[in-house]
Amino acid sequence: MSRTAGARDAARGRPRRATSRAVRGARAAQYTALLGYLLFLAFPFLWLVSTAFKPPRELARAHPAWIPDAPTLENFRRAFDEQPLLPAAANSLLAAAVSAVVAIVLATPMAYVLARYRNRFSRAATGWVVISQAFPLVLVIIPLFLILKYLQLVDSLGGLILVYVVWSLPFALWMLTGYVRAVPPELEEAAAVDGAGRLRTLVSVTAPLLIPGIVATALFAFVTAWNEFFFALVLLKSPGKQTLPVVLTHFIGAEGVADLGPLAAAALLATLPGPVLFAAIQRRITGGMLAGAVKS
């Protein structure tokens, strides 16, 4: 009996050991792929940082090094002297912030309607929102330009903000619709039993639970508008109204040769707001999601 029991235990132990090895191998492969992906994403940014602090003689090397031999801030000084970076950054900040706020204000009630009233119209609207994101910019720029010309909004930040709102609204609506569907309808039914109307329910019950989603969507809309180049290039002609991505192209000469040091320094400064905002708001978004889950 003891030999038979030992044989059975050994037979049972082999699949378990094989399964544990397979699990460890799968996890190792996942971690390796994740590390490779992170390195792939970090490589351009790290090279940009290295280039921004290199003096001209190191930039002219045939085989550049990762770490500058003599780090310098000269590229940053030249960048601010050669181009109006601060006014351009102010224009980008204004356009991105206003367009993100307006898009969220418009998308939140629309997302509530699409999520709570499911019918043919809502399904068609949701499908159109998804399809609209596939339209290339070249396809929509001519109609947008003609509309803004008729409204006398060409070469103005107001016209650019209007375009950013129209362009970011489908994405904001699609994201917020998913967040609204995650809110239990029973909470709204309980509020209705207490006598709250639809507007009161949306403001007092649903909106507080949507704060993490609203913040995340607004952040994505802001970063998208901050980095946008094509619309700003076509719609803005006055030097004092141009945004930061357009001004960065001025570091490239007529023959296509870039002043690499100041360009890298200016591009580094233009890249920082996105990661800084994500790092600053990440904990609040996660904490808000957990709080919403506990409340629901």
Rank of each mutant, 00 (worst) to 15 (best):
Thr243Met: 06
Met175His: 03
Arg198Gly: 06
Leu46Thr: 00
Ala33Ile: 02
Val215Ile: 15
Ala103His: 01
Phe145Gly: 10
Glu74Leu: 07
Ala29His: 13
Ala216His: 02
Thr206Gly: 02
Arg3Asp: 11
Phe222Asn: 01
Gly274Ile: 00
Thr51Tyr: 01
Thr72Glu: 01
Gly240Asn: 10
Thr206Phe: 04
Phe230Lys: 07
Ala172Cys: 15
Val246Gly: 03
Ile147Lys: 11
Gly127Thr: 11
Val105Lys: 13
Asn91Leu: 12
Tyr31Cys: 11
Asp259His: 05
Leu106Met: 08
Lys149His: 13
Ala232Val: 07
Arg200Asp: 12
Thr177His: 12
Ile252Phe: 02
Ala107Lys: 07
Phe220Ile: 13
Ala28Phe: 14
Arg116Lys: 10
Ala103Thr: 10
Phe222Lys: 02
Val140Gln: 09
Tyr37Cys: 10
Gly256Ala: 09
Leu153Phe: 07
Val193Ala: 06
Phe76Trp: 11
Trp226Val: 05
Asp9Gly: 09
Arg181Phe: 06
Val101Leu: 13
Thr72Met: 07
Leu139Trp: 09
Gly13Glu: 14
Ala191Cys: 09
Pro87Met: 09
Pro143Phe: 05
Met110Trp: 08
Thr271Pro: 00
Tyr150Asp: 15
Ala279Gln: 03
Ala172Arg: 00
Val257Thr: 15
Ala291Cys: 05
Ala60Trp: 00
Ala280Phe: 12
Ser2Asp: 06
Glu82Asp: 13
Thr224Asn: 12
Ser132Val: 07
Ser156Asn: 12
Phe53Lys: 00
Pro15Ile: 14
Leu59Val: 07
Ala89Phe: 07
Leu235Lys: 06
Thr271Phe: 08
Val165Trp: 01
Ala42Trp: 10
Leu199Glu: 08
Lys241Leu: 15
Ala182Lys: 07
Ile281Trp: 08
Pro136Thr: 09
Leu73Lys: 08
Ala26Phe: 09
Ala5Val: 13
Ala29Glu: 13
Val163His: 01
Leu160Phe: 02
Val166Ile: 15
Pro245Gln: 03
Ile161Asn: 04
Thr249Ala: 13
Thr108Phe: 10
Phe121Cys: 12
Phe145Thr: 12
Thr201Tyr: 03
